[in-house]
Amino acid sequence: MRKMTNKNKQTEEQVAANRKAARKTAVILAVVALAVFAYSVYVVFDHATK
C-alpha cells in the first residue's frame, strides 16, 4: 500500500488552522481598503480647502 507523508497530508485540523490565519489576513486587507478610502477622501478634501 502506498504511504502518505505528513508533508503532503491535509487534515481537518490543518484546514481549521489555515482558516484562522486567513481571518487575520482578511482583517489586515480590510484595514488597508479602509485606509485607501480615507486617503482618497482626504486628497479631495485637502485640494478643496486650498
Binding site: 508533508k7 503532503n8 497530508k9 491535509q10 490543518q14 484546514v15 489555515n18 482558516r19 490565519a21 486567513a22 481571518r23 489576513t25 482578511a26 486587507l29
Partner: peptide, 9 residues
C-alpha cells in the same frame, strides 16, 4: 486570504 492561507501542502 484563500490563496495565501488555504493552499494544499
Amino acid at each position: 486570504a484563500t490563496i495565501m492561507n488555504m493552499r494544499a501542502p
